[in-house]
């Protein structure tokens, strides 16, 4: 068994320790003796996207996101939409997540057209939502609790046929209003949990690998790993979030 991973636009969408996620996917496959090839696809690079099983799109700076919109417009956008409809697995984070929606409208009202691969849109707000947060994955995504860090001013609103990736326990998620976090559409996992979300959420990481393996081989045999170190990092954040909010409520 092997998985081909495509890291989309690693040179610009890498702001927040995103490479930790690729390292995690690679490593959790390697620990199980499953082969893995990571291809970095930069702006201007041409490749046959159908040969990849799992795509990763990270977050970036506003300045650099403009550079890549032109590249998406040149045809890669169509290929990405096709891969999504074909059931390929996507992990899209923060800016990369927003990019899959219809558009981003800034707080000043300037509209930026995005891929429209998934039915949602994002509107800039005047307050940034920044902090550790946690959410429960939907049952279709394994149901585990994910801890992460969100940092966005855009508020995302999902269309009727798109499931949220999870439900917020503590923090803001998509918009800070409807309790949803991220999106799950076919095998697209979109989330605001930026940076290295996977290493300390091993169940979420395995869910992505399982989804990609099942799509490719019809089955996934993921042997259990010793996740002591991983889960202690997870639990430390989770405990703090729960304690802090309890303390706030008492005040």
């Amino acid at each position: 068994m092997e998985l081909n991973i495509c890291h989309l636009y690693p040179e610009v969408l890498n702001l927040y320790g995103d490479r930790g996620n690729i390292r995690c996917l690679e490593q959790r496959l390697a620990w199980r003796g499953i082969d893995c090839h990571v291809t970095m696809l930069k702006i201007g690079d041409q490749a046959d996207l159908t040969k990849f099983d799992l795509f990763f799109v990270g977050g970036g700076q506003d300045f650099e996101q403009e550079v890549l919109l032109a590249d998406l417009g040149s045809g890669k956008g169509g290929e990405i939409r096709a891969a999504i409809e074909d059931g390929k697995t996507f992990l899209a984070i923060c800016g990369g997540y927003q990019m899959l929606g219809h558009y981003y409208e800034t707080h000043e009202g300037v509209k930026c057209e995005y891929l429209g691969a998934v039915d949602f849109y994002t509107k800039g707000a005047d307050v940034r939502m920044i902090d550790n947060y946690c959410f429960t994955l939907g049952q279709e995504s394994g149901g585990s609790v994910v801890v992460g860090f969100e940092n966005h001013s855009g508020k995302t609103w999902l269309g009727p046929d798109v499931q949220p990736l999870g439900r917020i326990i503590r923090g803001n998620g998509n918009n800070g209003e409807d309790g949803t976090e991220g999106c799950r559409y076919r095998n697209v996992f979109g989330t605001y949990s930026h940076g290295p979300v996977l290493p300390k959420n091993p169940q979420f990481a395995d869910e992505l690998l399982r989804t990609a393996l099942i799509r490719k081989y019809g089955k996934a045999d993921l042997a259990p790993l010793d996740d002591t170190v991983e889960l202690s990092a997870h639990d430390a954040v989770y405990r703090r979030l729960m304690n802090r909010f309890e303390a706030d409520e008492r005040d």
Partner: peptide, 17 residues
Amino acid sequence: DRAEELRLRLKYAGVKT
């Protein structure tokens, strides 16, 4: 505060736990 996360980072860096 984030010692656990550091330990995880080092595990991924290939330092024996």
